[in-house]
Design a protein around this nucleic acid. Structure first.
Lengths: 244, 244
DNA sequence: TAGTGGTCTAGACCACTCC
DNA sequence: GAGTGGTCTAGACCACTAG
C-alpha cells in the first residue's frame, strides 16, 4: 500500500509491527508480547492494539491462539494472486482502440462440443441456453476470442438483447447483482476455426481462461476466453505471506 | 467462507447485510441507514456496527463517505484472483510422487539469454548471481522446468547449498523472511532444449510463469517456471466485487 | 454549519486452552 | 484453574464534506 498516510494510531502501529516482521527483527516463530503489554508499550487502549493484531493476523503475518498468545507466522507456500480484469479495461490500459464483434448468437440445446469447450457441468443441462461467440479487438487486431453460454432461466432478458452493440460480459455485469466465479487458466495449442478467427497459425500457443459464474447457487454463464499467447499475459503483484 | 459459525454478533450481522446485497434486496446505489440507526435496529453498540460496515467496505460491497453515508457499491470490473502455489504442494495435491532433479548450477555473469529468458531488470546486473536449472517431477513425469537466478549479494548462503537435495524455491522460502513478488503468466510454444527436457514435441503449448521476488527493495530471485499446458492449469475461486 | 463516518478509550465478560 | 485472545459496550472527540 501507499506509505503516504501514517495518520491513525493503529495504522502507524500496524506499519511498525509489519516492518519488524518483514525485515527479520521478528523472525518466524517469534513470540509477540501479549495484547495488554503491547497496548501499554504503545500507549493505546487494548481495543486499538487488538485491531492492529487482528489485521496482522488476517493478513497472515501472525498466528494468534488463545492461551499461547501471538507468534510470527511461518512463510508458507509461494502463493500469489493474479488479477483477471475485463477485456475492455485491458485494451484501454494499453491505450488502444477497443471494439467488439458478435459472430453468432443462438438459443439451442447444448452440444457435445459446447460441453467440452466450455467445460459445462453435466447436471446443469436442462435450462434454455443462449450461446454466443464474438471477438474482442485491440486496434483492429483480434485480441480475444470469446465463447459463452448464458442461462436464460436466470437471465431471461438476455434473450432480447442485441449483443452486436453490447458486450455480453459488460452487460451481464451491469445486469446481475453480485456473483461468484471459478476460473481455470491453461495454455493450449490453437487449431481449426479458433486459429482462423484469431488470425494465428495452427499450433500457436494461446492462453485459455474458462470462467463459470454463479449467483446464489445457480449458474449464470460459462465463458471461454482465448488470448494469443505472445500478445497477452496476466500480471500479478504479490505480498509474501501464507495462505491466500 | 464456511457458513458454519454464525456465532458472533458482527459475523451474524455481516452475513445478513451481505445477503441483502448479493440477492439484490439492496441493489447497487442503495443508501444504507446510518451507523447509529443500524446499531439501534440490530440492538448493538455503534462500534460493533462500525466493525461490520468497515469489513463490508473493505470487501468492496459498499462505499462509505463522510456526510453522505454508506451506499451499496456498483459491481465493477470482472476481476478475479488466481492462486499460484508452490510446485511441491501442487504435486502433493494430486496425490502423486514428487521429486526434484538439479540440472545445472553455476555462478557466473548474466548472459543475454538469461536476461531475456528470466526477464531480468537491466539495472540489477552487478551482483554475483547463481544460476540454476532443474526439473520438478510428478510420478517420474516432467511436471515443471525451473530456471532461476539468485542474488548472492542478498542470499550469500545459497552459494554453499547443495541444490541436488534441497529444492531452491522451498529453501529460499525457509531462509528468507517475508518477500514481495511480481508474476507474469503467459502461453508459449515450447522449443529447443526446453522441449527436450519436458519431453514435449516442439511447439507444444506451455504455461510460462515468470516471478521476480524482492525483499526490502532488493531483488532476491528471478524464476521461470514452464508447465506443459495440457497437464497443468491454474484454478481460482472468485467472489464478485470491485477492486481486488 | 451540521451531519456523517473514523477513531479511540476504559472497562467488562466470555470461551478456549494449556497446565 | 489461570491466562490468553475474542468480543462487546457506552460514550467521546475529531475530520471531512455537502449544503
Amino acid at each position: 500500500m501507499a506509505a503516504a498516510q501514517t495518520e491513525t494510531l493503529h495504522s502507524r502501529i500496524l506499519a511498525e509491527l509489519t516492518r519488524k516482521i518483514v525485515d527479520g527483527s521478528w523472525p518466524p516463530g517469534h513470540q509477540l508480547p501479549k495484547e495488554t503489554e503491547l497496548a501499554t508499550q504503545y500507549g493505546v487502549s487494548r481495543m486499538t492494539m487488538n485491531k492492529v493484531l487482528t489485521q496482522l493476523a488476517q493478513e497472515g503475518y501472525v498466528v494468534r491462539r488463545k492461551r499461547t498468545g501471538t507468534v510470527v507466522a511461518q512463510p508458507r507456500a509461494q502463493s500469489a494472486v493474479l488479477a483477471i480484469n475485463n477485456i475492455q479495461d485491458e485494451v484501454a490500459a494499453l491505450s488502444r482502440r477497443y471494439h467488439w464483434r458478435l459472430l453468432s448468437a443462438e438459443t439451442r440445446p447444448r452440444s457435445a462440443q459446447d460441453q467440452r469447450q466450455l467445460d459445462l457441468d453435466a447436471e446443469e443441462g436442462t435450462c434454455d441456453t443462449l450461446f454466443l461467440q464474438g471477438l474482442h479487438y485491440s486496434n483492429d487486431d483480434p485480441f480475444c476470442l470469446e465463447s459463452r453460454a448464458i442461462n436464460l432461466g436466470v437471465v431471461p432478458d438476455a434473450a432480447g438483447m442485441d449483443f452486436d452493440c453490447d458486450v455480453p460480459g459488460s452487460w451481464l455485469l451491469q445486469t446481475m447483482p453480485w456473483t461468484n466465479a471459478r476460473h481455470h487458466v491453461r495454455a493450449v495449442n490453437v487449431a481449426g476455426r479458433d486459429a482462423t478467427l484469431l488470425q494465428l497459425p495452427v499450433g500457436a500457443a494461446c492462453l485459455e481462461i474458462l470462467r463459470k459464474t454463479q449467483i446464489e447457487g445457480e449458474w449464470v454463464t460459462y465463458v471461454r476466453l482465448l488470448y494469443p499467447g505472445e500478445a497477452h499475459q496476466l500480471v500479478a503483484e504479490f505480498e509474501g505471506r501464507p495462505g491466500g
